[in-house]
Amino acid sequence: MNLRIISALVMRYLFLYSRTPMRLVELVFWPLVDLVVWGNVTVFIQKNSDAKFGEFILFFLGAMILWDILFRAQQGVAISFLEDVWTRNLLNVFVAPVRTAEYLGATFVVGFLRILVTCCVMSLVSWIGYSFNIFQLQWWLLPFFLNLMVFGWALGMISTALILRWGQAAESLAWAVPFFIQPVVCVFYRVEDMPAWSRPIAWLFPATPIFEGMREVMKSGTMNWNYLWLSVGLNVIYLTLAGALFVWVLNLTRKRGLLTKFATQ
């Protein structure tokens, strides 16, 4: 791992974002739309039901923000790769002394930066618009944030591997993959609210204990360390498997001679 190379690749993405402000708009716009819609829905529910129901605003907005962390981290990886495909830059990168780990590392950093931007915007708006102070979520949540980000990276590598395997026709997977798993990772509801048969599936994903843990922290202010360790453990497995999948598909692409087709088409 060479930090200079990672920083060079990150620099390329920063130049890109500074050159094409539309990409920044996308970073800010969609989270904002989500937030406003969900915020208003919760306000509506709050006004038309008894007070106890009101605490749901916390859950919904908290879940929204956390889901976005996962999504942005995944996008950081998948979209960064697609940027290289769209600008036909992949070949230049692959004939430069860039290790696969360095390339992925750079996309992880981009994922992290995207989260920072989105989080700042969402926290600010939810605070001003709905008096929802993200910091009332407690610092306990930070390890959950980090775990979500790591799971987002893993999903990003999986999306990228799928695009490499099936070509540009599969490009939309970059946006779709996180939503494939959304129903089973209990973003907006508890595992016990799911049909009994599907509950074991939920626990296969590191995001589930994170969302469960988040709700518990917000409700009782106490941290359930079991949730945290479970998500860390699952994340280690996911990150390893996703990395291996990416490397495997990359080698397969080399073997089939399709890497250059990808880079020059």
Binding site: M11, F15, L16, R19, N89
Partner: peptide
């Protein structure tokens, strides 16, 4: 092949 089209020339070369 080309260097990324949406960057300035000096940006690409610096990277």
């Amino acid at each position: 092949t080309a260097l990324p089209g949406n960057l300035l020339v000096w940006q690409n070369l610096s990277v």
